[in-house]
């Protein structure tokens, strides 16, 4: 015998100080914020409150992109394309989606953030990264 069930419990995830600042900048300023650790000379994307290498906190906030390069991409059967995008000015890559692709993407391809028209302080305020004008896909 099988008992069918489903867990439907709404959750409220606190984004934290740096996370909230990151989401608010997406929503209100269409800016992608990162963090620089002066000690490690490393720029993290997205914004974070402490350095994962040395523990320094807080870190200097800086704007990244909105352009960048595709470090890796993977396509699902439903057509969704996930990618690691290295934003201009960042040392780490941001995981997101690729959209508006005229063909198969390629590693190293230039892309640019496309912001959603309606923004709700979510990572989905970036609708995805699309090929930069003039970039060959």
């Amino acid at each position: 015998m099988i008992r069918e069930s489903a867990i439907r419990i709404p959750f409220r995830y606190a984004a934290g100080g740096a996370g909230s600042r990151f989401l608010a900048a997406l929503r209100d300023e269409r800016r992608i914020l990162g963090a620089r650790c002066d000690g490690c000379r490393r720029v993290f994307a997205p914004l974070r409150s402490f350095c994962s290498s040395c523990g320094a906190s807080p870190l200097e906030e800086i704007a990244l992109g909105p352009g960048g390069r595709v470090e890796a991409w993977t396509a699902r059967a439903d057509g969704t394309v996930f990618a690691l995008v290295r934003l201009d000015g960042a040392d780490t890559a941001l995981l997101h989606r690729l959209v508006g692709l005229p063909g198969e993407p390629r590693r190293g391809m230039r892309v640019r953030a496309r912001f959603a028209a309606e923004r709700r302080a979510s990572i989905l305020d970036i609708a995805g990264f699309e090929p930069e004008e003039g970039a060959s896909a």
Binding site: G19, A72, A75, F82, L95, H96
Partner: peptide, 16 residues
């Protein structure tokens, strides 16, 4: 906050 809303899963991570 940064990944779950995108719909990525472990399989997508392995694909990347």
């Amino acid at each position: 906050i940064h990944v779950q809303p995108l719909g990525a899963d472990f399989l997508a991570c392995a694909g990347l």
